[in-house]
Simulated assay, not measured.
Amino acid sequence: MKHRLREWLRRYLPAELLSALATLAAAGLVMRASRSGVRAALAGTWAGNVAYFGLLLAQDVRLARRARRQRGYAYTWRTFGQNLRALAVEFGAAEVLDSLVIRPALMYYLPRWLGHFAAGILLAKLLADVTFYIPAILSYELSKKRLRNFDDEP
């Protein structure tokens, strides 16, 4: 279990940190520009998503390139499609509920309830992450052998 926890932290923590920065920056900028809690919540949600999934995709592409190169194969558009499919399986169900309902609602209400915008946004992000990671990690573990094997011939 220690090995898996380390693997999950290595996989998710850098993306989480980048996502937190993007979330706070986008939500803060949009709130300052528009004075709209709804717009700020949506901007924070989507900026965090772009940063999070962008970094994970870049990591996955790098790992797949390395695995294929070691076997003497090129990284192709088909391999890139396999990277995208693996991410979709890993995060699909968790992401839909998270991005469309849970995270925006928490990012809208928690700053109001706490009376502090940045603290509310950060707490909302952390609470939403709990409901996000349980199905995401389960899907990741179930898909590792089948969707993340890049050693096969082209």
Score class of each variant (00 low, 15 high):
149 N>E: 11
45 T>N: 14
97 L>K: 04
73 Y>F: 07
18 L>I: 02
19 S>N: 13
64 A>G: 03
2 K>A: 15
51 A>Y: 08
147 L>C: 12
77 W>G: 12
87 L>W: 08
41 A>M: 03
68 R>T: 10
108 Y>S: 09
101 V>R: 11
152 D>W: 08
147 L>K: 10
36 S>F: 02
47 A>R: 09
38 V>H: 00
127 L>Y: 01
139 S>D: 14
135 P>K: 03
38 V>G: 01
51 A>Q: 00
52 Y>S: 03
95 E>Q: 06
79 T>M: 11
29 L>Q: 11
140 Y>M: 11
22 A>M: 05
31 M>I: 09
132 F>G: 12
37 G>N: 14
151 D>A: 02
124 A>Q: 14
30 V>E: 02
67 A>M: 14
20 A>G: 09
115 G>C: 00
144 K>R: 08
52 Y>E: 04
41 A>Q: 03
60 D>A: 07
1 M>F: 08
38 V>C: 03
40 A>T: 02
88 A>K: 09
110 L>W: 01
124 A>I: 09
53 F>N: 02
70 Q>S: 14
120 G>H: 02
98 D>I: 14
27 A>I: 07
139 S>L: 13
102 I>C: 02
7 E>T: 07
148 R>A: 07
108 Y>P: 07
6 R>S: 15
2 K>L: 14
89 V>Y: 04
134 I>D: 04
114 L>W: 01
142 L>S: 15
12 Y>G: 15
123 L>A: 13
109 Y>W: 05
106 L>I: 05
31 M>G: 04
90 E>N: 13
6 R>M: 15
86 A>G: 03
27 A>C: 09
91 F>G: 00
49 N>Y: 05
103 R>L: 13
36 S>K: 04
109 Y>G: 02
4 R>N: 14
82 Q>S: 03
89 V>K: 03
78 R>E: 15
138 L>H: 14
62 R>A: 11
85 R>G: 01
107 M>Q: 13
137 I>K: 10
83 N>G: 04
50 V>A: 06
89 V>T: 06
45 T>D: 12
129 D>G: 09
12 Y>S: 13
37 G>H: 03
138 L>D: 06
125 K>S: 07
75 Y>H: 10
56 L>M: 05
112 R>W: 03
27 A>W: 01
34 S>A: 09
54 G>T: 07
6 R>F: 14
135 P>L: 03
40 A>I: 01
